[in-house]
């Protein structure tokens, strides 16, 4: 498990949203095979953006309230927040550069 990725509960997640960094959160579960394929991509992003973006993973079985809040109906789903606001939703598998482009566009502003 990578040190650059956080695994927040509801209050920790809310604190991340209020923080000064953009937040990328990957909703996943143990039993979801595509989620496990996305895992290494999220870890890459965590390392690449360490200190600039809060990269988080939320297990939908352990944090059902967060999954319900964002009406997650298919996993993996990756949400990207900037200044607490949802700016991007990616349902399903994507290549790393799809997320990177969104993050770069936020950071460059």
């Amino acid at each position: 498990m990578s040190a650059s990725i956080v695994h927040p509960n509801v209050s920790e997640f809310d604190a991340l949203l209020k923080g000064d960094k953009p937040v990328l959160v990957d909703f996943w579960a143990e039993w979801c095979m595509p989620c496990r394929m996305l895992g290494p991509v999220i870890e890459q992003l965590g390392e690449k953006y360490a200190g600039r973006v809060a990269v988080a993973k939320v297990n939908v079985d352990e944090q059902p309230d967060l999954a319900a809040r964002y009406r997650i109906q298919s996993i993996p789903t990756v949400l990207i927040f900037n200044k607490g606001e949802l700016v991007d939703t990616q349902v399903g598998l994507r290549q790393a550069d799809v997320y990177a482009k969104v993050l770069d566009s936020i950071i460059d502003k």
Binding site: W31, M33, V60, R71, S74
Partner: peptide
Amino acid sequence: LLGRGVSYCATCDGML
């Protein structure tokens, strides 16, 4: 509606 109720994989999304 893909990912908003439409799924192609029962074993992936069934638990939801």
